[in-house]
Design a binder for these strands. Sequence first.
DNA 1: GCCAACGTTGGC
DNA 2: GCCAACGTTGGC
Length: 170
Amino acid sequence: MCSRFFYFWFYLFLRDEMNYWLMKSEPDDASIDDVLAMSGQTIAWYGVRNYQARNFMRDAMQVGDGVLFYHSGCAVPGIAGLAEVASTPYPDDTQFDPKSKYFDPKAERENPRWMLVDVRALRKTRLIGLPELRQQEALAEMQILRRGNRLSITPVSAAEWRHIAKLMKA
DNA sequence: GCCAACGTTGGC
DNA sequence: GCCAACGTTGGC
């Protein structure tokens, strides 16, 4: 099942098409407003410590891919902005920093375990909350809406992307 | 704060 | 390689 999943995304990668993603951030940590206020409106997507999410950044993302900026772990979780992938993958520095809460004692400089990409915020959108997302028949298959989904980075289909783009204007 | 879901760890 | 225990995520 895992390998089928992998080959599907590798296939998309080889087709060299634009891919779409949803990336969760806790607004207390880095909100869409915070990133828009940063230099270049760009943030290194540090702190991912899940292999599947890491693999998306390391193996599947391409510069220019579309990103739905999602606020989680807050009063009103939902899609809060539009962003894009802004770099190729490189090591997450926080894995080497003993003072960081993302420190990984098993990570080695010569053999980094955690990779990230830069994400550039494009604009804030109206907040599209979970209840509204769940109402959309076109989004019934979205990974983020599946029961028990905890993955912080998930692929979004082109059809889902277009539907959400329309919702943002509504 | 609760709890379901799921990933990781470590003993065997 | 199995699987129980444990930790984390994240909506509510």
